[in-house]
Each structure stands twice: as structure tokens, then as C-alpha cells.
Nucleic acid binder design. Structure first.
Lengths: 220, 220
DNA sequence: ATATTTTTAGACGCAGTTGTCAAAATCGTC
DNA sequence: GACGATTTTGACAACTGCGTCTAAAAATAT
């Protein structure tokens, strides 16, 4: 029994290393060349394994592709929810903390390697795999929006924001903090740090002009 | 001379009809399959012409692709600037007119067939053709933003808006009116009329809470 | 050290694609 | 109806890529 377990664990050392490098390489090549343009030899070369190993692990090109897609989706989602957990719950400087939150969201989810790959793969091949696409949509953006909405609702209850529809507010928040990065984001470019911070700052400022509590009119 | 000209013109009747149908079909197939996945036979079949005709017109697959891309870019840009010309200059109901403007922009540029195709082609193959991509970026989104910014600046001068940076305002306008349509737009779906109007209305309302003139505080 | 599993390398058949060619068919015009 | 231009058809060679197979090599477990 214990032997069987240790066998499993040990066998998966180099094994899983190859598995991972295959996924990385496949993501990169599929992303660069599209599903139709990618070929297994490229992926094998980039992964540093033989072509046969890829076939051993994943059967065929299509299976490899769907595996890569679901892998990236899962990774991305865990990242998103980890960052969602850092949403300012009891802010003292709402503007600064929302901006920092937005920057975290970008750097860890939207603008990193996985985010770029996933975005492009969904964009270019989403039609071909409706199930994977639906999964991504349901577990990713949809839950992100509602998670964000819930947190904005909480802030509204605390009297820090003036929100009627939290879902709309959440979508507008995402749209605003990325406004300055378009159309680069749409097109696969990854924004660098300074741009991200500027865009986030602009976006949050605008967001607070929409939903921030109006200062009671001082008798000036 | 006149014969030569008339020959040219007449010869180009069915000729240009085929030219157009080739471009349409190529756009559709490239968009669906990616450059690598598309093949000339598909395009020929969808265009209702023979494969040879495509080679006669465009030389090879790559030339056809770049031709399609520049054709779509040009079409899209003329559409955008036509709509930009309908921006409300002397609005009586700013919110309603901006909303209608946003809807026009979507229905004529972003959400129509060409818009969807161009977006997807730029997304998936933009890296491969840096020149075409740069042209698109420079003549399309960049000029759209600055054209929009100029018009917002005019409204600000008229005292109808309270804007400091018109470029930021323009980008935020675009981002807000499409906020409810994400991530569908990113992913190639075309929104239907009702969704577009709702999203535009929400976006414009938010935009005016950012940049609308504050009503002078009434002594309530 | 040995047995077992995994990986590699190379060759292979097969199917699909590209781009070319020449002859036949079609179209528009006079 | 005859003419010139365009399009179609079908065949072609060269190439590429997928997926399979086998024997050798390497890694791993016992």
C-alpha cells in the first residue's frame, strides 16, 4: 500500500515536470499560431520533449488544446479569486485602496502570461469549443463580476458608496480601470507597470465620481 | 481609347463582383479558422468562385490575407468617421443624444459584420503583420479617440460638460458604453439591439455623473 | 543490480494544402 | 455569331503535418 503510493509520487516527479513544460509550450505555440497554425513538432521542440511523449500524454492535438485551455482557465480563476480576497473591506483611504486593488487585479490576472494566453485563445478559438468557452465565461468573468458586485454592495451598506445596482457598478469599475489600456489589451499587448497604475488611478477616480458619496454641500 | 475604357469598365462588372465576394468569403473563413486553419478551397467554395480565380486575383494566401485586412480596416474607418460626424453638436437633451450616438457607433461599427471580423482578425493575427496592425491602430482607434476627444472638448467649452482631460474622457466614454457588453465583445459575440441600448444608456448615465455639470446646490 | 516504466529517435503512411499549368467553358461586347 | 478576356475544371508536383510504429535509450522503482 505505502509502496504503491510512493511509486505514484516518485514516478510523477520527472513525469509531471514534462507534463507542465508541454502545457506551457503548447499554450505559447497555440497562442502564437492559432490552433490551425500550430503543429506538434513546434510544441515538442519548445517543450524540450519528443513528439511521441506529447501523444503519450494527450492523445491528439485537439485533446491537448482543450487540456491547455481548461488548465489556463483554472489557473486564471484561482488567481482572480485570490485577488478578489484582497478587496478593501474596511478602507480608510478608499480611492488609494481601490486603485491598489485594481493594479493587483491587472498584474496578477489580466496582464500576466497566463492571462494573455487565455484571452487570446478564447478570442481566437472560443467558437470552436462552446463548452470550454461557456465554462470560462461562467466560472471566470461572470463570477468575477458578481464577486466584485457583492463587495461593492458591502461598501455601499457601510455608507461609503452610493450604489443602486452593484452589478452594473462592478462592470463599470472593470471597464473604467482598463479604459486607458484599450485597445492594446484587446489586441494581445501586455501593459507595463506605469501604464497600468495610471489607468487604474484614472479609472478609480472616475468611478468614485460616479458612486462616491457626495460631500454635503458646504455653505461656501 | 473610349473602347478601351468602356471595355475596362464593363469587364470589371462581373470581375469586381467576384473580387468582392472573394473578399467577403476570405474575411469570413479567415475569421472562423484563423490564418493557419483557413484554406483556399474553403474560401473559393464560400465565394462561389474557383480556386484559380483567387490565385489570379491575389497571388497567394498571404497577399489575400493582407488585402482582406486592409480592406476591412478601410471600410471600418470610413464607417467610424461617418458616425463621428453625427456627434451631437448643439444638444438639447445631452443624455439622450449621447446615448443615441453611442448606439449608432455600436450598430454601424463595432457590432456589424465587418467590425466583428476585423476585431477578431486583428486579435488573432495582429502580431504576424506589424505594419497592418500599426496602420489599424493609428488610423482607427487612435483617431477615433482623438476625434471623440475634440468633440467632448467642444461640449466642455459650451459649458455643457466639466472636462479636464478630453482624451481620458473619450476613452472612458467608450469604455463605459461597452461595459455591459464585455466580455461578450472581446470574445467575438455580436450583441443584439436591446443589449446595446441598455449598455449605452447605463454608460452615458455614468459618464454624465463623472463629467456632467453639477447642478448648483439648491438650498434645500 | 535488475526489472519496469517512460522517453526518445527515426521512419513511415496517409491525408490535406499550396500553388501551377493547360485546355475547355463561359461571359460580355461588337 | 465571332471575338477577346475571364473563369472554370481537373490534374499535377512538392510540401507539410498528423498520428503510428518500432527499437533503442534513459530514467525509475524494487
Amino acid at each position: 500500500m505505502s509502496t504503491a503510493i510512493s511509486t505514484d509520487i516518485n514516478a510523477s516527479r520527472g513525469h509531471d515536470a514534462k507534463r507542465r513544460s508541454i502545457v506551457e509550450a503548447a499554450a505559447s505555440v497555440f497562442c502564437r499560431e492559432g490552433f490551425g497554425g500550430a503543429n506538434i513538432d513546434m510544441i515538442a521542440a519548445e517543450a524540450g520533449v519528443s513528439r511521441q511523449t506529447i501523444y503519450n500524454h494527450h492523445g491528439d492535438k485537439e485533446s491537448l488544446f482543450t487540456f491547455v485551455l481548461s488548465e489556463l482557465t483554472e489557473r486564471m480563476n484561482t488567481g482572480i479569486f485570490r485577488v478578489l480576497g484582497t478587496f478593501p473591506e474596511n478602507p480608510v483611504d478608499l480611492q488609494a485602496e481601490l486603485t491598489a486593488f485594481a493594479v493587483r487585479m491587472f498584474e496578477n490576472c489580466v496582464c500576466n502570461r497566463d492571462g494573455k494566453f487565455l484571452r487570446k485563445l478564447i478570442q481566437s478559438e472560443g467558437d470552436r469549443y462552446p463548452e470550454l468557452f461557456a465554462t470560462w465565461l461562467r466560472d471566470g468573468p461572470a463570477r468575477t463580476t458578481s464577486g466584485l458586485a457583492a463587495r461593492f454592495a458591502r461598501l455601499a451598506l457601510q455608507g461609503l458608496l452610493d450604489i443602486t445596482d452593484p452589478d452594473v457598478a462592478a462592470r463599470q469599475f472593470m471597464a473604467l480601470v482598463r479604459a486607458d489600456l484599450e485597445p492594446g489589451l484587446t489586441v494581445g499587448m501586455n501593459a507595463c507597470g506605469a501604464e497600468v497604475e495610471k489607468s487604474a488611478a484614472n479609472g478609480v477616480k472616475a468611478f468614485l465620481r460616479i458612486y462616491g458619496k457626495r460631500h454635503p454641500p458646504s455653505t461656501s
